[in-house]
Computed example of a mutant assay.
Amino acid sequence: MTRVLLATRNAKKLVELQRILDGVLGSQRIQLVGLADVPAYQEVPETGLTFGENALLKAREGVKWANLPTIADDSGLAVDALNGMPGVFSARWSGRHGDDRANLELVLAQIGDVPDEHRGAAFVCAAALVLPGGKEHLVDGRQTGRLLRAPRGEGGFGYDPIFLGDQQDRTNAELSPEEKDAVSHRGKALRALAKVIAKALPAESAGWTGR
């Protein structure tokens, strides 16, 4: 089984990606570990102006310090009425990184007077795989929909409780994990990345063992 680092401290993301990889590759193929499972290193600031730039920054650092194939993603919410924001600032839109509730409430307040027909939005995800040999792969995924006026559902995380995807009658937070994987931006990106992993890792992993 090949150990692969997911460059995040978000336990929900770790579980989500392991579930997606198992579905594509089989449960005996990849052992996914997070930043809490490797020796600590100084994490690089997310200074990129696009999701792809940030994903690659984080994945390169993981390879540099952990010497493991590293997956990193950057994702967020692009709101039509906010000209595509919060975008790469989604996780810290309220000024406090990772405060999901505050971020959600700020977005709702900012578009409070926007009529329903103009509350379009999309979840966007870029996922990168960087290998110890230096090769890099980048894929993306997108889920379009609209924003509700109040949260619904207890599942998911981030902006899931206010996001109603196209052709859905439930928010992402009301979907089961498997249902969300099938339609979400991250699910689409990571399924695409899993296909890359299936081809890339056997050839690249023979010469290293990690540390």
Rank of each mutant, 00 (worst) to 15 (best):
A40Q: 14
L49P: 00
G112Q: 15
A192H: 11
G158H: 07
G158Y: 08
R170S: 11
R146W: 08
G141A: 07
P39T: 05
F163H: 04
L25H: 12
E179N: 08
E174W: 07
G52S: 13
K12D: 14
A36K: 13
E204V: 02
S176N: 07
R3Q: 14
V124N: 02
D37W: 03
R170P: 03
V63Q: 09
L138H: 01
M85R: 15
R146K: 13
V124W: 00
T50F: 05
S184I: 01
S184K: 01
D116T: 14
S205P: 00
E46W: 11
S205D: 09
L68Q: 05
D181H: 15
R19G: 03
N172A: 12
I30Y: 02
A200L: 03
E46Y: 12
E61S: 15
L68D: 04
L32Y: 10
E178K: 10
R186Y: 04
A198G: 09
V24T: 09
V139F: 01
I111L: 06
R19W: 05
N103M: 11
A126M: 00
G48H: 12
S205Q: 12
H118Y: 09
A11L: 10
P177N: 11
V24Y: 03
R119Q: 08
L108Q: 04
P86K: 13
G134N: 02
T47F: 03
P115I: 13
I30T: 05
L35P: 10
P132N: 04
K64G: 02
K135D: 15
T144F: 01
R3C: 06
E204A: 14
W208T: 09
V183C: 14
D140I: 00
R101L: 10
D74G: 06
G87F: 09
T144H: 07
P39K: 08
I162Y: 03
E174V: 10
G87K: 09
L49V: 14
C125D: 02
L49A: 15
L148K: 02
F157P: 01
E204H: 10
G26N: 13
D116S: 15
L175P: 05
L148R: 09
A59S: 13
G141I: 03
K180Q: 08
L108C: 06
A11Q: 14
E43S: 10
G48N: 11
R29M: 14
S75T: 09
P39R: 10
S205G: 06
L6H: 07
G207Q: 08
V107S: 09
S176G: 13
L25M: 14
Q110G: 05
V88L: 06
